[in-house]
């Protein structure tokens, strides 16, 4: 990456560190494990994660499992609507390889063929702790990138 581009990117992503706003595309199986994350049991709001209902407000798109041919078109549209420093997280085994639907004619096999994916979280479905770890890693990555740029 060119140095200036990196700086711009870090500045943009730096905004993301304060609070991660997640778009509500709780499409498939992963939604049942995101419900405890959202609600009182695991309470993601204490880490600054909020659910928003509008893609124009969102920083992060969580794909929670298999996507069918029909729903991936909507995912691409939603992704294009999100403003630019944006992150895509894919939960579950299905976006990685197709999971147990590897021979299904109507589900996509790898999500990164359609939209850029920053993080895959494996599991069927992943536990709530895994989601937190993933967000933690994401924030840590952005922080490191920021420090690296500011040191230069």
């Amino acid at each position: 990456m060119v140095e200036t581009e990196k700086k711009v990117m870090a500045r943009k992503l730096g905004r993301l560190v304060r609070a991660v706003w997640i778009f509500n595309w709780f499409n498939s199986c992963g939604c049942t494990e995101l419900l405890p994350v959202v609600s009182s049991r695991y309470d993601m709001e204490r880490f600054g994660l909020i659910i928003v209902d509008n893609p124009k407000h969102a920083d992060c798109l969580i794909i929670t499992g298999y996507q069918t041919i029909k729903s991936i078109k909507r995912v691409v549209r939603i992704y294009n609507q999100m403003p630019d420093p944006k992150v895509v997280m894919a939960l579950g085994s299905c976006p990685i390889t197709g999971g147990m639907y590897w021979d299904s004619y109507n589900t996509i096999k790898r999500l990164s063929d359609y939209i850029p994916v920053h993080m895959y979280v494996p599991g069927c479905p992943p536990r709530p702790e895994a989601v937190f770890q993933a967000v933690g890693l994401l924030v840590e990555h952005v922080r490191k990138l920021k420090e690296e740029v500011s040191r230069k």
């Binding site: 029909k70 729903s71 639907y101 021979d103 004619y105």
Partner: peptide
């Protein structure tokens, strides 16, 4: 409808019984 159609009825035809139980 159709956003979650995976074709279970056909997937089960291609798998053995223990695999279907997991499916």
């Amino acid at each position: 409808p159709g956003y979650l159609h995976r074709g279970f009825e056909k997937l089960m035809e291609y798998r053995m019984v223990w695999q279907d139980a997991v499916l």
